[in-house]
Design a protein around this nucleic acid. Structure first.
Length: 544
RNA sequence: GCGCCCGUAGCUCAACUGGAUAGAGCAACGGACUUCUAAUCCGUAGGCUGCAGGUUCGAGUCCUGCCGGGCGCGCCA
């Protein structure tokens, strides 16, 4: 599906070839500031050097060629050499017709891709930071899928390492407390009170059988019990947010099925592995000179997290993904070069390994800033947040900003049911449209044969142009990995609709034909808003 | 010290990746409900885009150097 803008781009390009007998340099078609037409292109300016002519002269020749094209109502030179043009409303009418029948998704790719996100180890509740990651990943997955990709959503977790041991140990301590026996937490233990509940469940199941001793033998019982409970909790939290995964991937499976051995052999065979000081190293510096080499097998014989990650990447590659996306918090950015080096070392294509970094989330309620630390105990969890403000608001707020900017989540704002909350603003537009349709039905307005071409006042044109942007928005979400564009788009469309609604009588018994046309336009708006909200995983209510 | 990210109205953010007069919301002020949902709309006010240079027809956007904030720089994950 071509977008309106890309069709205009093509028309300009063809005209350029026809007039100047050569291909133009890359140029853009944009929506200009108010007063400069529906669309605008820099084609003349960026090709001035190529043609050794002034931009305005180039523009004039193109305009002479295009001015009789039925697409364009008028087309003119402006400023330093912009080509500004107004599109005939007939063209917009076609877009609207199409929209009412189903949103025109651009087909961007068909490859099999994987997105991995959250991937929190099951040692405690998810934080609001995980929430941001979950939503970024979930929304991008939906958009990738909608634009043609085969998408696997994956959650990777460490199910065997030291962290799990500490979790089991912490549970043991809480469990003993239930019998009045005090043991101090060690430094790496999880002292959050949430394990007390788990300890009670444990007690119920096993009685006092394991109170006395913490040893190799009964560790596993505590670890497994705690891990399972934590995972149930995490999954429940994610489910409440509407976040689901196709695969939950256990780190230990890499050791069980031989992937780690295979990865080690590949790296060794290619000469990227060496031994020093009783440890095994991966020669990152051979691939990226300014980076340091990294340990992959410790002195005590245990592999590092990094080594598991290399094996995991190999696993992903062998499963046939053309591209994999890792969504990480900003604290992991230093990890990118060594992973890139690993990707190179294993001989994967340049664009196989991709990272989407998001900055941190700060929670604010009025003036108070809440800091979060998992090990230390008390903090506002993702679950608390979702319960407090609801799924729709939580999702919107996490999707609303560029992943690359620091997110201040204002609880007060999120809880507000008033005009300052953008979620309700967008949803309200949808509800309003639905109620207009109901109203039109009551008044016997028949819109099946409505004719978009009879519309075309300033606001209707603006709305139509906004709707025509849909494929562009989808494309930029996918190519730039920026979910916030969906929010901006939905908001902007809602804004135009609200304004239109206030200035124009939509359902008017005295003018049924006009009403029918307008209702149909509103349906196109409603349809688009609903679609965008669904990509965001947010409800489109029919009444509020 | 080195690396990555960020710095735009009082606050929270846009600005289609180099385009024209930098736009919204909140907060402030003034208007619009006997009329399709006022969770809405219309208007006023608010800016040396952190600072200083540079690149070019053109810079919030690109390059350099500062300043300020966040995050990294483990045989932790």
């Amino acid at each position: 599906m071509l977008s309106l803008r890309s069709e205009i781009h093509d028309k300009l390009s063809e005209s350029f070839v026809k007039v100047f007998r050569m291909k133009p340099n890359a140029f853009t078609v944009e929506i200009p500031p108010k007063g400069f037409g529906d669309y605008s292109s820099n084609i003349a300016m960026v090709n001035a050097k190529l043609l050794k002519k002034s931009p305005r002269a180039i523009a004039q020749e193109l305009i002479d060629d295009l001015k009789n094209d039925e697409w364009f109502e008028y087309i003119e030179i402006a400023g330093p050499g912009f080509v500004n043009l107004n599109v005939s409303f007939k063209i917009f009418a076609n877009v609207l017709k199409e929209t009412v029948n189903g949103l025109p998704y651009p087909k961007i790719g068909s490859d099999s891709v994987q997105l991995e996100y959250v991937s929190a180890n099951p040692t405690g509740p998810l934080t609001v930071g995980h929430g941001r990651q979950a939503i970024i990943g979930d929304v991008l997955s939906r958009v990738y899928k909608a634009s043609g990709y085969k998408v696997t959503r994956e959650y990777y977790f460490n199910d065997a390492g030291k962290q799990m041991k500490m979790l089991g140990h912490s549970l043991w301590i809480r469990y003993r407390e239930l019998y009045g026996k005090k043991t101090d937490f060690s430094e790496d233990d999880y002292r959050g009170t949430y394990l007390i509940e788990v300890a009670k469940e444990f007690k119920e199941k096993y009685g006092d059988a394991y109170v006395e001793e913490w040893n190799e033998k009964n560790q596993k019982i505590f670890i497994d019990f705690a891990r399972d409970r934590m995972f149930e909790w995490i999954k429940k939290t994610l489910k409440e947010l509407g976040v689901d995964f196709d695969v939950y991937f256990r780190e230990s499976s890499l050791y069980e099925d031989g992937t780690t051995d295979e990865a080690m052999k590949m790296l060794r065979d290619k000469g990227y592995v060496y031994e020093k000081d009783g440890t095994t190293w991966f020669a990152v510096s051979k691939l990226i000179p300014e980076e340091d080499d990294r340990v992959i097998i410790r002195k005590n014989g245990e592999p590092t997290y990094f080594f598991s990650d290399i094996a995991y990447m190999l696993n992903k590659y062998k499963r046939g993904f053309k591209k994999v996306y890792y969504i990480w918090g900003a604290d992991h950015h230093g990890y990118i070069p060594r992973m890139r080096a690993a990707s190179k070392a294993l001989g994967f294509p340049e664009d196989f390994f991709n990272v989407i970094i998001h900055q941190f989330v700060t929670l604010k309620s009025g003036e108070e800033v809440v800091r979060m630390s998992k090990r230390q105990g008390e903090f506002t969890t993702l679950e608390d947040l979702t319960k407090k403000v609801g799924r729709d608001v939580t999702r919107y707020f996490f999707a609303m900003l560029d992943p690359n900017t620091h997110l201040v989540f204002d609880m007060k704002l999120a809880e507000s049911k008033k005009m300052d909350n953008p979620v309700y603003y967008v949803q309200y537009a949808h509800a309003r449209i639905f109620s207009l349709i109901e109203k039109a039905k009551e008044r016997d307005i028949e819109w099946d044969n409505a004719d978009f071409e009879k519309l075309g006042n300033t606001q209707e044109k603006e709305i139509a142009r906004e709707i025509a942007e849909f494929p562009e928005v989808i494309t930029s979400v996918v190519t730039e990995n920026k979910p916030q564009k969906l929010c901006n788009y939905a908001y902007s469309l809602a804004e135009k609709f609200h304004s239109y609604y206030n200035a124009n009588k939509i359902v008017d018994e005295n003018n049924k034909e006009l009403s029918a046309n307008r209702i149909k336009l509103c349906m196109a708006v409603g349809r688009t808003i609903k679609e965008v909200l669904s990509l965001l995983g947010i409800n489109a209510p029919t009444s509020m």
